[in-house]
Write a protein that binds this DNA or RNA. Structure first.
Length: 492
RNA sequence: CGGGAGGUAGUUCAGCCCGGUAGAAUACGUGGUUUGGGACCACGGGGUCGCAGGUUCGAAUCCUGUCCUCCCGACCA
């Protein structure tokens, strides 16, 4: 990698950190690799969570909650899954502290309180959930089980980044059990579609649906489906995954049911998840140098109203106007905030809410009262217009829709611009290192080739797109035959 | 776990090379003037300089050790 790109990516990391921290979403915590999600960031997460939860319920799922701790013996039951996560597990070995006899006021782990069996802090919940499902399932009449849980998980990563890769993170994980393979595959694809729908229509972020190659597959899955998004620095980000687990977990945990023919069968499984990483995707995809840009549909505040006044008299008149305006906005289902804090001046507030990415700002001052107008500024384009206060709510509602749509279109145009076909190795290398984005190229289907390409270019196969057309071609590296193109990119 | 940078006021950092009364900006508190793109004045509170040793009359500064953080790499959602 060239020096220039290295420094550019360093700048990008700085830009990203500033956005997250100064935008008020999150901050570093005192705990290694963990972050504090601040109220503004958590409200965003809640909005995302509520919508996803609604979509899960619309597709027949229910929520439940399983333990944080997984006994090691359960964890190791599904071999591939255990192996895949073994290197990044936090483990509870003791259950008690005691006073340090040699160091007053300090505590040490009580060696007497060693656990007979260590507890793994879940990096994912397949093991604990499937050991439970065993007790829930006897007959085909118990199927399907369509359960989701909202939870935290812990993965002891070497290096962390706010939202994108923290030691502890929040997510949802769906775990379903089915009587047939076909049903399970359908479920896997259905949930991938739900994710794509959510990310595109609520987060205004276009994604590519695809299947992972064997080496990128979830540990223990037969197939991993994914949605891949493109960030503004040209790197790809896996935004969500949906796994077809086959009968692996059923066999590992001995989950069988009696079918209609009175025969024992292993159940078929899926799991799927998205995490607070989506917030990282949102930040990297939409923000500009002024700060965050929130898609209206999930923005913590959709509208902020800033009063501009001299003296209490003007303030009172504005207050009255704004009060009825806020009421109207609320009735229309628009999340609005009135910032009449007297400690900060309007200019300060303008800058502040731009950093936070509030989609629409309404400024109202004495001049406006006189003319029966307000000033509307949209965050995404930073355009300002003065409009009549009559019919404002309808105008704002329309504007929010427009912003949502425009943000999606902008992100999509950016991505389309950066899906480039490559037919020779030189072309491929040039595109990956200089242009970035997705490079669509032929691959011979072997893990060895995939690995070599990754070593040489740092680009991995992000996915085999679901809509990839059959096309005869030659592998970009080996020249061996291939019958469709896959998408390569450098990734987070 | 390798490479780099860093730990000094709530925050961002200067001071360190060349040892000698701990600083700036910003944030915070009080009072006042302000308010259409990050206001200004006055006064004020706030730091055992990451931690532990060592050298020295004297250490933020030099030496040794140690812990932690960030960035890059490896690993990964």
């Amino acid at each position: 990698m060239s020096k220039e790109i290295t420094s550019r990516s360093q700048d990008y990391a700085q830009w990203y950190n500033d956005l997250v921290i100064k935008g008020g979403l999150a901050d570093y915590s005192a705990v290694r690799g963990c972050m504090v999600i601040k109220p503004y960031g958590f409200t965003l997460w809640e909005n995302m969570r509520d919508q996803l939860d609604k979509m899960f319920k619309e597709t027949g799922h229910v929520n439940a909650y399983f333990p944080l701790f997984v006994p090691k013996s359960l964890f190791e039951a599904e071999e591939k899954n255990a192996e895949g996560f073994a290197k990044e597990c936090a483990i509870v070995t003791h259950y008690r502290l005691k006073n340090d006899p040699e160091n007053k006021g300090k505590l040490i782990v009580d060696p007497e309180a060693k656990l007979e069996e260590e507890l793994v802090v879940r990096p994912t919940s397949e093991a604990i959930i499937w050991s439970t499902y065993k007790t829930w399932i006897q007959s085909y009449r118990d199927l399907p089980i369509l359960v989701n849980q909202w939870a935290n998980v812990v993965r002891w990563e070497m290096r962390t980044r706010l939202f994108l890769r923290t030691t502890e993170f929040l997510w949802q994980e769906g775990h379903t059990a089915h009587a047939t393979q076909q049903e399970a595959v359908e479920e896997t694809v259905r949930m991938l579609d739900v994710y794509a729908d959510f990310v595109e229509n609520w987060m205004a972020l276009p994604v590519i649906k695809g299947v992972k190659t064997a080496s990128e597959r979830f540990a223990g899955a037969l197939d991993t489906y994914c949605i891949e998004a493109l960030m503004q620095d040209g790197k790809a980000l896996q935004a969500g995954t949906s796994h077809f687990l086959g009968q692996n977990f059923a066999k590992a945990f001995d989950v069988q049911f009696l079918n209609k023919e009175n025969k024992q069968e292993f159940v078929w499984a899926t799991s799927w998840g998205v995490s607070t990483r989506l917030i990282g995707a949102l930040v990297m995809a939409h923000s500009d140098d002024e700060g965050l840009v929130m898609p209206p549909k999930i923005a913590p505040f959709q509208v902020v109203v800033v009063p501009i006044y001299k003296g209490d008299e003007q303030k009172e008149i504005i207050d009255t106007k704004v009060k009825s305006l806020l009421q109207e906005l609320k009735l229309a289902g628009i999340r609005a905030k009135y910032d009449d804090n007297d400690n900060n001046r309007p200019g300060w507030k303008f800058a502040e809410y731009e950093k936070k990415g509030v989609p629409v700002r309404i400024a109202i001052g004495a001049r406006d009262i006189e003319n029966n107008t307000v000033e509307i500024a949209r965050r995404d384009t930073r355009e300002k217009v003065s409009v009549s206060i009559d019919g404002l709510t309808i105008r704002i509602a329309g504007l929010l829709d427009q912003i949502q749509q425009d943000m999606f279109n902008k992100a999509k145009a950016f991505r389309e611009e950066r899906i480039t076909p490559a037919d020779t190795w030189d072309e491929f290398v040039d595109l990956i290192s200089n242009k970035g984005g997705f490079v669509s190229a032929h691959w011979d289907g072997t893990p060895e080739t995939e690995e070599k390409i990754k070593e040489q270019t740092k680009a991995s196969i992000r996915c085999i797109p679901l809509d990839a057309a059959d096309e005869q071609g030659k592998c970009i590296l080996t020249g061996n035959p291939s019958n469709r193109r896959v998408l390569f990119a450098q990734a987070y």
